[in-house]
Every structure is written in C-alpha cells, then in structure tokens.
C-alpha cells in the first residue's frame, strides 16, 4: 500500500484521532502560559529590585532555566520529585515544567517592557503619592503592555510548540496519540504529516498575528 492509498483509506481516521489530542495540548499550553505569566512577573520584579539578594536570585533563576533544556527540567520534575516525596501527575509535571521554564523567558520580556517606559513616569506616579506597587500596576505595566504584546504572542507560539515534548512524561496530547497510531498501524509518514499540519493550522496564523502586532507597535512609536 503506498502513501496515497494509506491517506485515502486511513487519512480521516488518523485526522479525527489526532484532533482528539487538541483539548489536552491546549490545556497544557494555556495552564503553563498563565503559570509563566505570573511567575515571570515576580521574577522580573525581583530582577529589577534595588536589593541584591532578590536580584541575584532572579538572575540565577533566569540563567539556569534558559541554560538547560526544557526536557531535562520536565524529567527532574516528573521522575525526580518522587525521590523527595512528591509524585506529580503527568499533567502537573507538564504545566509546572513548561511554566517554570517559560517564566524565565517571560521575565526577560517583562523586564524589557518595563525598562522601555521612561523613568519620569514612575517618578511622576510616586510624586502623586502612589505606592511603588500601585504605580507599577496602574502606570507602568499598562503602558509596557504595548511593547510587550508582540513578544508575548511569540512566546505563546513557542509554548504551544513546546507542548509537543510533554508526551515524554506521559501526557496524552497530539504527539502521544500520533505515536500510538504509528505503533498501531505502522503508517508513520501519514500520521506525522497530519500531526504536523494540525500544529501549522494554529502556529502560522499566530505568527502572522505577532508580525502584525509588531508592525503596529513600530508604526505607533
């Protein structure tokens, strides 16, 4: 049976089976995105702190998580944490792993965004009697959002693509279903090409959106 006959006979079955992986893929992507946004902001604020200890902690965090592969981080969490008495489920390991990893990247995006806002904005807010936290929340971050939106969209694309490694710790998402289908039918060509097409249907429009946001930001500046 050649490739085209396989596609004709089994293509629809492969497609519907792989589509069944989307909810899990999206759940991992969305949860770890939220996780990375929150932890990343904390790390970024520590990175910009006046005090040495939080600043050093943030620098080490960012360097370490950006300097090691996400797959190793996932393995430390999923296979290593039981050694210290905590057994995460595959889904928990996936969102904690990708979330902590993403936080290091998000922290740098936040930092660049916050630093792009003129210092006078912070000084003006403080002289109006705002606390530093309120000034950050109501004055700095809303303005920084404009600069940060294109890189955040790019980060979301990277994160969505990175969910394709979490099958290695047992999450049943698109790639895990693809591997199961290949074990079942041995038709790796058809299965992996369809799986690739499913990712492209989401990542290419998102990349176009990111490019458009970037152009708008440049026009606005």
């Amino acid at each position: 049976m050649n490739f085209f006959q396989v596609m004709e006979q089994k293509g629809w079955y492969f497609f519907t089976t792989l589509m069944g992986g989307w909810p899990e893929t999206l759940a991992v992507a969305v949860c770890s995105f939220v996780f990375a946004m929150v932890i990343g902001l904390v790390i970024a604020l520590m990175r910009l702190s006046r005090w040495r200890i939080p600043r050093w902690f943030a620098i080490s965090y960012i360097e370490f998580f950006r300097g090691t592969p996400a797959l190793v981080q996932l393995f430390v969490i999923y296979f290593g944490f039981p050694d210290i008495g905590f057994q995460p489920s595959p889904f928990q390991a996936a969102i904690v792993g990708l979330g902590l990893n993403g936080a290091a990247y998000m922290a740098e995006i936040y930092r660049a965004g916050i630093e792009s806002i003129h210092r006078g904005q912070m000084e003006a807010a403080l002289s109006l009697g705002m606390t530093p936290a309120r000034a950050m929340q109501h004055i700095i971050l809303p303005q920084a959002m404009r600069t940060m939106l294109p890189p955040i969209t790019n980060f979301a694309i990277v994160l969505l693509k990175d969910t394709s490694i979490v099958f290695a710790v047992g999450v049943v998402e698109i790639m895990a279903l693809a591997r199961n289908l290949v074990t079942e039918t041995l038709q790796s060509a058809a299965v992996y090409l369809i799986a690739g097409a499913l990712y492209l249907c989401v990542t290419i429009p998102m990349a176009r959106l990111a490019a458009r946001l970037e152009r708008q930001r440049q026009a606005w500046q």
Binding site: K161, M175, Y192, A195, L200, T203, I204
Partner: peptide, 8 residues
C-alpha cells in the same frame, strides 16, 4: 518555523 522541533 511553525512546526515543533519534535515533529520536524
């Protein structure tokens, strides 16, 4: 660029 590296 749109495909995850694992898929590539």
């Amino acid at each position: 660029r749109g495909l995850p590296i694992v898929v590539v």
